[in-house]
Design a binder for these strands. Structure first.
Lengths: 195, 195
DNA sequence: AGACACTAAGACGCTTTGCGTCTCAGTGTC
DNA sequence: GACACTGAGACGCAAAGCGTCTTAGTGTCT
């Protein structure tokens, strides 16, 4: 894909995001998105062979990459695993809470949005989370355990975001520390390569 | 139609208004409206034989009646034609400007909305305006001239609302008075039955 | 209990819209 | 000229939407 086409793809995905926010997944059409992006439908299908579903998957991947990029930007410079994890769950939780597009989607299309955060979307979330977070975590743990830990954290952050708890708030460092010390870190203590 | 059914019709028209604001005329479906109103599609068709178009016409008539009722509420107690007309054009212009649903429709569906304020909608607007305003105007003018005057005013108010002028502002009493004295009242001076 | 009015749910047949694919003419770059 | 890319529009098919209708259920009245 040439640089020019990369720009067009960005424009199309931006348009897809905008139109989905406006119309929702159910009513948005390829025509809406093509028009908003300023490309023809044929161009859109050339770009995303397989059509609508493929394009939405690409948008979801891009959104995830943006999300984890933002998380990664805020979790540099930690000296130990615990601090790193506290920071990760905190930033991730705050990013989820601040995501207006996500809030809008959860309000207007709860079914599909929940599915993308749970059942259907989890494999993708795991793939992207692994790419972004494992390289940080594996300073402290072997690769295999790092992957497992990232998966566990992703699931917990999503769950506590979707159904907030009266007892745990990952956005609060003390609460997160207590939770991690109780439920997560002991399982990985024996695998620590560095503190 | 029974009182209970009148309530249901109101509910359906309210739903139609809400869903049209949300989806626009192009994408809104009978299913959306029926669901929002809490009735079945069959009930909706029974209520509005001829379907979607008939229902939207009914909504437009209701909106016009509401509009002119509000105008009428604010123009009582005038001793002469000029004052009455100044008040009418002023209130009407302000009501149009304050109408958020109309603003939303003009922004999101300019084509259809304009058409309903001009070409396609004008006969209906004239009918309703005549019903509401002519009884006020014909204190001062014979019936025939009253009807003609109301039509002229309606057209002028709409035009100046849709394409505001640098020289005339009907919401401003002095501006309206000057305009009416210059362009409207002389045409009806000879027909005055009362001052 | 029976008569009647009204309703929701769902089926039906038809029309319209949307989808994915494709062709062709036009444009820009080398 | 060769090539890559694009928009516009046509095509065939699927899906959604429309208007109509039937049936079973509910409520009210006598």
């Amino acid at each position: 894909m040439t640089p020019v086409t990369r720009d067009v793809e960005t424009r199309v995905l931006d348009a897809a995001k905008l139109c989905t926010a406006k119309w929702g997944i159910a009513k948005v059409t390829i025509d809406d998105i093509a028009g908003e992006a300023g490309v023809s439908r044929a161009t859109l299908y050339r770009m995303f062979p397989g059509g609508k579903d493929v394009m939405f998957d690409a948008l979801r991947v891009r959104e995830l990459e943006d999300f984890f990029t933002r998380v990664g930007t805020h979790v540099d410079g930690h000296d130990d695993l615990e601090s790193l994890l506290i920071r990760i769950v905190g930033v991730a939780t705050r990013e989820l809470r601040d995501d207006q597009h996500l809030s809008l989607m959860l309000a207007s299309e709860p079914g599909d949005t929940l599915s993308q955060l749970t059942v259907e979307g989890l494999p993708r979330i795991m793939r992207v989370a692994t790419v972004f977070l494992v390289p940080m975590v594996d300073h402290y743990l072997p690769r295999r355990e790092s992957v497992q830990l990232v998966e566990l954290l992703a699931r917990l952050v999503i769950s506590y975001f979707l159904a907030p708890s009266e007892h745990v708030d990952f956005a609060d460092a003390d609460s997160a520390r207590e939770f991690l010390r109780t439920f997560v870190l002991p399982a990985f203590h024996a695998s620590l390569t560095r503190s």
